[in-house]
Design a protein around this nucleic acid. Sequence first.
DNA 1: TATGAATGAGGATTCATTCAT
DNA 2: GATGAATGAATCCTCATTCAT
Lengths: 227, 227, 227, 227
Amino acid sequence: MPMPAKPTPSTPVRQRRKEARPQELLDAALALFVEKGFAATRSEEVALRAGVSKGTLYLYYPSKEELLKAVIRQNLSKILADGAGIADGFEGPTSDLLAILLRTWWEQVGETPAGGIHKIIMAEARNFPEIAEFYNQEVIVPAHDLISKMVQRGVDSGEFRAVPAHEVTHVLIAPLIFLALHKHAFGPCPVGMDEIDAGRMIETQIDIMLRGLLARDVPLRSDPSKA
Amino acid sequence: MPMPAKPTPSTPVRQRRKEARPQELLDAALALFVEKGFAATRSEEVALRAGVSKGTLYLYYPSKEELLKAVIRQNLSKILADGAGIADGFEGPTSDLLAILLRTWWEQVGETPAGGIHKIIMAEARNFPEIAEFYNQEVIVPAHDLISKMVQRGVDSGEFRAVPAHEVTHVLIAPLIFLALHKHAFGPCPVGMDEIDAGRMIETQIDIMLRGLLARDVPLRSDPSKA
Amino acid sequence: MPMPAKPTPSTPVRQRRKEARPQELLDAALALFVEKGFAATRSEEVALRAGVSKGTLYLYYPSKEELLKAVIRQNLSKILADGAGIADGFEGPTSDLLAILLRTWWEQVGETPAGGIHKIIMAEARNFPEIAEFYNQEVIVPAHDLISKMVQRGVDSGEFRAVPAHEVTHVLIAPLIFLALHKHAFGPCPVGMDEIDAGRMIETQIDIMLRGLLARDVPLRSDPSKA
Amino acid sequence: MPMPAKPTPSTPVRQRRKEARPQELLDAALALFVEKGFAATRSEEVALRAGVSKGTLYLYYPSKEELLKAVIRQNLSKILADGAGIADGFEGPTSDLLAILLRTWWEQVGETPAGGIHKIIMAEARNFPEIAEFYNQEVIVPAHDLISKMVQRGVDSGEFRAVPAHEVTHVLIAPLIFLALHKHAFGPCPVGMDEIDAGRMIETQIDIMLRGLLARDVPLRSDPSKA
DNA sequence: TATGAATGAGGATTCATTCAT
DNA sequence: GATGAATGAATCCTCATTCAT
């Protein structure tokens, strides 16, 4: 029997498909869970969007709930890695680092489907406490610590005023979460739902908050007037 | 069956209960929708919590979906009334007005069950675009306009720097929404889920943001160091 | 609105139906479980045979497994009561009592749908150990004890030879169980499946076994030649 | 991959395995069908226990139902062969022959997995009438005839009383079937399920029944007191 | 042949909604 | 109006069977 040219000798088509399945299913599940919510998404929809049948989904994930966990887990690593990578070994003013971090998080996470995970968690946290706890430990706490330490560094170095790092961190993060929730909750709303310009909002936030944090008379390096 | 003597001559107990039914049902529904989400709340639960039977619920609301709409509609007025009332006729620095508004909103709305409406809307907006649109028109836009005008007033009067009012408004509102979502999404989580101290966070926000907004060298009247 | 004459003032139709439901469902379930086996019986079939819809079944029993348990429980009392009732206060030769007991059990239980419970238990015991244990404690052990004590009484009084009561009991019971299983397993087989004449078989069993048990030269009172 | 040297020159390992497949599958199926029942046994389990994959099972048997039929058919021959072999050319008292037959059947069939076939048949007879009919023709009728003829021989020779051979046969067989069903239905029950001592029960049965069959004053050769 | 990924019909269970009382 | 028994569409998940490799 003649072979079609170059079938990539090592991995047959079936095999390659099999290896791709989990990712395809996770992507489909993420998109649908963000869009319609966890409960309102039928498992068959997920399968269909991933191009497989109902049964195939259960070949890879034993239940819809486990699928949700896998979706969260898989996207967590991405989220966490980003932040830590940027912060590590940054030299320069803390205000610059924070500005970069906020902008980058939005571009790398907030705007992407992964940014919708917050929406899922918020909606289902009380029905799946285990997941909420997981998300808290794996995402919220590390992210908070990362920002919190920077704020404290700014305070310690005299760059910032003597502000409470814990609360400042929440205030810094809040607008980004708000933005992500807004985008994924109302995103492609057919009607007029005020389309927030995320870029401008983030620049404004950086401008105001960092200015509010800085000890007096220290000029900002990043010029917010460009936004 | 013996009746307790004279239960207010005009309106008998039965009568009052009957008239109170819709409100009791809406309250029960709000609490449950906020806690468990719309889909995960069984209509019988709502009825039971309101002290009536399943069938009675349908006497007042023709479907669970209409009940949700009614819950949102009814609570919108409450939400809206607050803001406007406070702002009207306020004399004094805009920064003070904003500070009062933020604190008051949290106390009057954010902390109450009504503050959970955001959670419901976020979770269900894409499944009920009509409601999202309604919420946008009735709550988001007016609230935004209210704050936005104040910010602009501060800019125009020279109290604030020349900032874009639209974006600043989002940045000001975001932490409150974040707080409300956090409280209602993770609220009585059995596990460690970082309990945010809302009061301190709001004061910190006021401190930082208003300082970030003010034109240089204008001292803040409300002393944030007390928080 | 005029009432139809004599609606039985106390219990309305709906009420009476409701009270009858559990029994109707248990009867339907017993019949179907015996006929087709537990696993092969769809819960909707049970409901339909009881004249209600799928959902109604779950109003009364929370799962198919609980339904099975209820079926067994409800029929156990009947089975157990029979035996004890007959034995209590019987005066006369033990062989006569045993003969009566065997005949009666067949008529009152073995031949009736309840006799099919053995078939269900046998088929599902290893999948539902809890049920097997329950049946063992509630039916097998008491029934065995009842017979066993009589045999021992016969031995002690010199009416029977010195036989091991425990084993004799099994030998006495076995043909009845065999008969019940046979009847309910092959019962209305369209094809020729040897229709055992239960009456004649039981009389033959009584004849042979009691004769085998009796100490020599004691004549049997019940004349087996009539069978 | 190195092969162990010379695995029997004629038939290579692979070859022998292939030829053994059907038997391995039938054995696995028998064990599982007896243990869990036909419906509750997944075909993949059967394959796995036989050391092959799901698909391979279907290479040999076109459906689970056909597999069940094959299991039963294949084990019938084993069951049948036993009885006939023993009876042929036996000289001596019929009571001795019957005693030997009962003991042998238990050892050769009842105790082995084949003894569990009764359980399968009983459970599924009404769902697979064809199989029930087949079993009846191939096993029950011949076995019955075998015993029946012996009983009749005993009666004709004056060794036994004038009993109805047909019914006596059922009474003789019943305890063995009962024993086999009990063993395979409750067998390795973790809990206290009365473990019947099959040996003692069979000896007791032989003692009582044969004594009950024998014409008066004919002593038994096999001494049951040893049991 | 042998494999195991894929399928989809089937079945248990839930729950919004209806309606007789 | 009020009730809650009844319904059956909807949904999760299982598993016998198929088929490309």
